[in-house]
Amino acid sequence: MKVIFLQDVKGKGKKGEIKNVPDGYARNFLFKKGLAVEATPANLKELE
């Protein structure tokens, strides 16, 4: 799953980066803790 990092995550990505991460990791950790959002067209547009 492609995500946009909202904060630096040690060993995974830095704020503003767009990266592919495993689905479970994204849903169960990154999204729940507010560290990233899914890289949807709407979210990508907001990032610009």
Rank of each mutant, 00 (worst) to 15 (best):
N43I: 12
K2T: 14
G13K: 01
G16F: 10
M1L: 14
N20H: 14
R27T: 09
K12H: 15
G11E: 05
I18S: 03
Q7Y: 13
K2S: 11
G34A: 07
D8K: 04
E46I: 14
F29K: 06
K14T: 09
T40D: 06
L30Y: 03
G34K: 11
I18A: 04
N20M: 15
R27E: 07
K15L: 06
F31T: 03
F29D: 06
P22S: 11
N20Y: 15
P41L: 12
R27V: 11
E17I: 03
G34M: 10
K45M: 13
V37S: 04
K15V: 08
K12D: 06
K2M: 15
G13L: 02
V3I: 08
L6A: 03
G11D: 08
L44V: 11
L44R: 07
K15D: 01
P41M: 12
A26Q: 05
P41F: 11
V9L: 06
G16D: 04
I4K: 05
V3Q: 00
I18D: 00
N28P: 00
M1V: 14
N43S: 08
A26V: 07
L30F: 02
V9K: 02
G24Q: 13
I4F: 08
G34I: 03
F5R: 00
E48T: 14
A26I: 07
F31I: 11
N20R: 14
L6Q: 04
N28H: 12
L30R: 01
A39T: 02
V3K: 01
G13P: 00
K19W: 08
N28S: 10
D23Q: 14
F5K: 00
G11M: 05
N20I: 15
V3W: 02
D23S: 15
I18F: 04
E17P: 00
K45L: 13
L6V: 09
K2H: 09
V9G: 01
K12V: 15
F31W: 03
E38N: 05
D8E: 08
N28E: 12
F31P: 00
L30Q: 01
V37E: 06
L47K: 07
R27P: 02
Q7M: 13
L44G: 05
K33G: 08
K12G: 13
T40P: 05
L6R: 05
A42N: 10
V21S: 02
L35I: 06
F5P: 00
L35N: 01
L47Q: 09
D8Y: 09
V21M: 12
K2G: 05
A26E: 07
D8H: 09
K19T: 08
G34R: 10
L30G: 01
I4H: 02
P41I: 13
L30M: 03
I4D: 01
N28W: 13
E46L: 15
K33I: 09
L44H: 06
A36V: 05
P41R: 09
I4R: 05
E46S: 12
T40H: 06
K32W: 08
L6D: 01
G34W: 06
K19Q: 07
D23H: 13
K14P: 01
I18G: 01
V9Y: 04
L44Q: 07
T40R: 05
P41E: 14
D23R: 14
G11A: 04
G13I: 04
E17Y: 03
E17D: 13
L30K: 00
D8Q: 05
K32N: 07
N43M: 11
P22L: 08
E46T: 12
E48G: 13
K45Y: 11
P22K: 09
A42Y: 09
D8V: 04
N28G: 10
K10A: 13
V37W: 07
L30S: 01
V21R: 01
V9I: 09
Q7T: 12
Q7V: 15
Q7G: 05
A26F: 12
L47P: 06
K2I: 14
G11H: 08
Y25Q: 04
E38R: 10
T40K: 05
